[in-house]
């Protein structure tokens, strides 16, 4: 064990943990939103993330035409390019998430199928997407061009406030605030909360259940797409199975925070990112997964519904 790294690298690790954790949080929101209304885990969300990373890569290299070794961009061109890739990734993931809902959930729900059937069909969609991308890319990892030069705002006790790290911290916080407000205050947000509390009563109140569920998948896709863009911008690579480990981490974060709870997903992701960084630094990277899941089990032993409580009603914020 190396505790000295805590004193020498505390702020650096904290910053990296925050950026990683907030990317987890965005994907985690995708899981928790769907769980809130359907009380089912959308296992295809990890592959929605994967498609988002490839969408970002595709936009940058094929639509905007930047070569892998293209020089970094500056000024308006940089902002325009990143914004375009960001929006494209979110839209691609939202559309895919809606498609997942239509294919894997809606038809089964309309026919009154067992809930497990939807779960299996979502896993089927996930495998379909994963294997399709494996075939398309012949399993090769792909790198994205470094369009954003990784300049630094400055350092604080060894922590390097790099532009990409700061983007991965600020963007998710802004997205979470907007989402939190949307679910808490808007008419559509209230519909989502109503459906999460009681589908039957929502129907009686005239809420279009299908519309709300589609909207929920769409929102989950948007947050997951944002995470995919940030991941690709920070780590500059992707591979057909990138969604697997991200999906496990984000689902863990959702459970840690309390699945079905927006704030739980957000802070669960944050806690997981910090935990991974500090566990890797203190115990060695090989102990990262062991530490994370040990902490998860311990937390669930004392708080079975997660840190913020599971209850679907918690979606009320």
């Amino acid at each position: 064990m190396n505790f000295s790294v805590i004193t020498s690298q505390f702020w650096s690790l904290a910053l990296q943990g925050l950026s990683l954790g907030l990317i987890y949080a965005l994907v985690s929101l995708g899981y928790t939103m769907v769980y809130g209304v359907l009380r089912l885990i959308n296992f295809a969300n990890s592959e929605v993330f994967m498609v988002g990373t490839f969408a970002t890569l595709f936009i940058e290299t094929h639509v905007l035409g930047y070569a892998i070794n293209a020089p970094s961009l500056h000024g308006f061109k940089l902002i325009y390019t990143l914004f375009f890739a960001f929006v494209a990734s979110m839209v691609a993931c939202a559309l895919l998430a809606i498609l997942v809902e239509l294919v894997a959930y809606r038809r089964l729900r309309a026919r009154g199928a067992n809930r497990l059937a939807s779960l299996i069909s979502a896993i089927g969609v996930s495998i379909f997407l994963l294997e399709s991308m494996r075939i398309i890319t012949i399993s090769r990892p792909m790198t994205t061009p470094r369009l954003l030069d990784k300049w630094s705002f400055g350092t604080f006790h060894g922590a390097n406030f790099r532009i990409d790290t700061m983007m991965a911290i600020i963007f998710p916080i802004l997205i979470f605030i907007v989402l939190d407000q949307f679910v808490g205050r808007s008419r559509l947000g209230k519909s989502i909360r109503a459906v999460s509390m009681s589908e039957e009563n929502s129907k009686l109140m005239g809420i279009n259940i299908n519309r709300v569920i589609t909207l929920t998948f769409c929102i989950g896709g948007l947050t997951t797409g944002a995470a995919a863009f940030l991941y690709t911008t920070v780590y500059e690579n992707t591979v057909f199975n990138v969604g697997f480990s991200m999906g496990i981490a984000a689902f863990t974060a959702a459970v840690l925070g309390g699945i079905g709870n927006l704030r739980g997903a957000f802070f669960g992701g944050l806690a997981l990112g910090l935990l991974e960084e500090f566990a890797s630094a203190i115990l060695g990277s090989q102990w990262k997964a062991v530490t994370v899941f040990t902490v998860l089990v311990v937390v669930l032993l004392f708080r079975p519904n997660g840190l913020f409580g599971e209850a679907v009603q918690q979606t009320r914020t």
Binding site: N2, V5, S8, Q9, S12, L13, Q16, L20, G158, Y231, Y235, V242, S245, M246, E276, E277, F278, S280, A281, G284, S285, Q286, A289
Partner: peptide, 20 residues
């Protein structure tokens, strides 16, 4: 020394340790 499983996405904590 450090051992990081093949397939890890995030190497930033290793980078911090190396720098330190």
């Amino acid at each position: 020394t450090d051992s990081v499983p093949k397939g890890t996405a995030d190497y930033t904590s290793v980078a911090s340790k190396v720098k330190a």
